[in-house]
Computed example of a mutant assay.
Amino acid sequence: MVERKSLADDRDKRDNRKQTGMFGEAAACDYLLSKNYSVLERNWRCRSGEIDIIAEHEGRLVFIEVRARKQNGRFGTAAESVDRRKQQKVRETAQVYLRSADRSNASVRFDVIAITINRTDETIVECKHYEGAF
């Protein structure tokens, strides 16, 4: 007999993932501020998608995708989860931001910050910043 999951189980998993993501984004912002980045936007949204963090560093606009994963997860590392499709989505959304902010001529870079979280005590095990990731 196959055990069926309830809708509440699915909701709990989504809520847990959302909490992990919010925790990771907060940690990424703290990291960026410690490295003298100016955080301009968090969770900037438009019709085409969302950009986790938009920052400025040394005169360059930096679009940052944040991925947070629990340690020893089944689905690979946080950085590995930023696939080609996600990269394209971030690029398209960045174009919308650049037009809306009247910064179409800005120098830009696309980074990934991968946060690894300890399963047991919910502390950050690792924060990796991949500058110019795509």
Rank of each mutant, 00 (worst) to 15 (best):
R109C: 12
N36S: 13
G49D: 10
D10I: 10
E58A: 08
K86Y: 12
V125D: 07
V66F: 02
D83L: 05
E50Y: 03
T93P: 03
M22A: 11
A133M: 11
V96I: 15
A28H: 03
Q88S: 09
R4S: 02
I124A: 00
R103S: 14
V62W: 03
K86H: 15
V62L: 03
E122Y: 02
A8H: 07
C29E: 04
C29T: 04
A78Y: 05
C29P: 00
D102W: 12
E80H: 04
K35H: 14
T20F: 06
E131L: 08
K89T: 13
I64F: 04
E92Q: 09
R60A: 09
D15H: 06
D12E: 11
E3W: 06
T120Q: 01
Y37L: 09
A68P: 04
K86L: 14
T116D: 03
Q71A: 12
R14Q: 10
F75L: 10
H57R: 08
E3M: 07
N43I: 01
C29G: 02
A79W: 09
A27G: 02
M22E: 15
A78S: 05
E25Q: 04
R45S: 13
D10G: 04
D9L: 05
E126W: 02
L32A: 02
H129N: 07
L32T: 00
Y97W: 15
T77E: 10
A68R: 06
G132N: 15
S38P: 00
R91H: 15
M22D: 15
I54E: 00
V108T: 15
Y97L: 13
K5R: 13
G73V: 02
R99G: 07
S6A: 07
C46S: 10
N36V: 01
E50F: 04
A101S: 15
A27F: 02
W44T: 10
A94Y: 13
E122L: 06
I54T: 01
D10E: 13
I124F: 03
I117A: 00
F63T: 05
H129I: 06
G73Y: 06
R14P: 00
R99I: 14
G49I: 11
E56W: 03
D30H: 08
K89S: 12
D111M: 05
S100F: 13
R109V: 12
D102M: 10
I124Y: 02
K89P: 06
E80R: 06
N43R: 08
T123C: 00
I51S: 03
R47M: 09
A28I: 05
R14N: 05
V108Y: 08
A55N: 01
S48C: 03
Y130D: 08
S48I: 06
A78C: 04
E41S: 01
V96P: 02
R109E: 15
T116C: 01
S81K: 08
S6Q: 07
S107Y: 10
D121M: 00
M1G: 13
E126I: 01
G21R: 06
